[in-house]
Structures are given as C-alpha cells and as structure tokens.
Amino acid sequence: MAENQLTDLAAPGIALLGLGVLILSRRRRPTRVTALPVLAAPPVDRGTAIHAAKRLNRAAGTLAASVLADSAVEHYRGSFHNKAMFAPLVTSALSLAVSVHGVADKRPAAHWFRDTVYVVAGLTGLIGTAFHIYNVGKKPGGMSWQNLFYSAPIGAPAALLLSGGVGFLAERVRDNKPGTDPLIAGLPAGRVVAAATGAGLLGTVAEAGLLHFRGAYHDPFMFAPVTIPPVAAGLLTNAAYGPACSNRRLTRWWLRLTALLGFAGTGFHAYGVARNMGGWRNWRQNVLNGPPLPAPPSFTGLALAGLAALGLLEDNPDG
C-alpha cells in the first residue's frame, strides 16, 4: 500500500517539480549585481525596468493560467448555471494572452491593450469576489463555516484580481521614463509590488487554510501552504517597508521555495484525487470533488511577482 502511494505521488510530483525548476531557471538575470546591494548603486537603465516588467507579466500570466484552469473546472462543476460564470474564463484567458505578449515585448511604455485587459481582469475578479460573497450570504446559514466550505469560494476570484493587479503594475513599471527610478503612483515600484504581493499571498494563504481545514488537515503536507507562504509574505512586507539596502538572500530563496510549493501542491492534489474512491479512473467525479488541481500554482504566480519586486528593489534602491 505504502509503495503504491509513493508511486502515485512520485509521478505527478516529480513532473511538476521539474516543470517548476525549468520555469524558475529560465529566469534571465542580465543585470544581476553580484555584489551586495548596499555597495552598489547601479545605473538605472531602461533594460532593467523592462526586464522587471516582463517578470511581472510572467507572474500575472501564471496567476491567470491558474485562474483559467480553476474557474473552468469549478464553473463546469457549477454547470455554468449563470452566464456570468463564463466571465472569469474569458478574462483570465485574455490576461494570460497579454501576459505572454508582455513577456515577449521588449519595448518600453505600457501597451494600451494589455493595460485594458489587466484592468478588466482585475475588475472581474473584484466583481466575482462580491458575487461569491453574495452567494454565500444567501444560503441558509449565511456566513457560516458550512457555506464558506462548500459555496462558491470567496478567495478564488481574488486570484483573478491579483493577476490583473500584478499585470497592471507590470505596465506601470514598464511605463517609467527611461533613466529614472520606476515609480508607481509616486512610490518606488519595487516597494509597491512587494507590498501588493505580500498582501496577495496572505489572501491566498487564507483560502488554502480554509479549504485545508475543510479537509481536516488529514495529511501533514496540508500544513505546507499555511506555513511557507506566510513567511514569504512577511519577508516581502519587510522588503516593502524596510530599509532600502539590505540583504534579501533569505527572502529570495524563500520566494523560490514558495514558487516550487505551488507546483508541488498540484502534485499533492493529483495524489489526493487518486486517493478518492475510484481514483483517476473516476476522474469525472474526483477531479471535481477531490482537491483542486489548478489552485496551488497561485502561490507560484505570487512568488514570481515577489521575486520581480525584489529585482526592482535591488536594481533601484531608493532613499
């Protein structure tokens, strides 16, 4: 039995870990300063801002992909009984598409279409969150644990909001005048992105915590998403509000760990599906009723945004 479980676990787990490592290692670091940031005051160049923006596009795209897959599965489960349930599929697909475009785009200045899509995606996420809250509230029992567990999850549309938000920040970073420190609404871009990402991580942790509580934390690995990402959120928040020049090696590695966790989570969830009655052969039930496969990579998307924020902070140390 144990052997079987291990093999079940190993195949998807290794595959996804491999994919995760591949994506992370593809990060190009052309202007990476090897000396400690405190010693370096690198010249602000156009390339770093664009590079940072592209990394944020990539994070937004990862989040969008997670939302696309998750909302497709969950809203299929909900039989699309309300036409608005197609909205997140459309907007997350668009967000994914413009993110890919952004990653490939070497030009400075925000792109109006990307901007529009990111704003629409963010708004869709916001409206979706409101709609899911309304949905919970109108059930018998209202805002109860029971309804938080089984009604439309409040945290899910927030991932779309995050995708739109990170994408929007990507455009703002890209939009800075060459040769100046990237600013967003007058604030250093790195700090803004770090703060937003930290908050997003905490929201995602809350969602994972709620659903893993529903699963009674029956497997000790279920504690991973409520222990590792909160530390990442804390480190990022510290980066956002802390002194400009500090050693962020721990933060960087912890964010990488969080990014890997997102992929590993999908592997664990695949194992969870196998543990349900009938396993993968009963996929039409178990993919829907088992742990959600597309949900964990939200952590990866946010961790990528956090890494981009660190890059910005180190490339453009303010004050």
């Binding site: 489960r77 039989s79 009938g278 009963n282 039409r284 039930q285």
Partner: peptide
C-alpha cells in the same frame, strides 16, 4: 452509484450522468 457517486448536490443541479 459505485464507485462513482455524485458531485452536484444542490436543488435543480444534475450531474451529466
């Protein structure tokens, strides 16, 4: 209904099977 049971449990909800 075994091993496959049901997913959509609420009023006016139906699984494809």
């Amino acid at each position: 209904a075994s091993p496959r049971g049901y997913v959509r449990m609420g009023l006016d909800r139906r699984d494809p099977w």
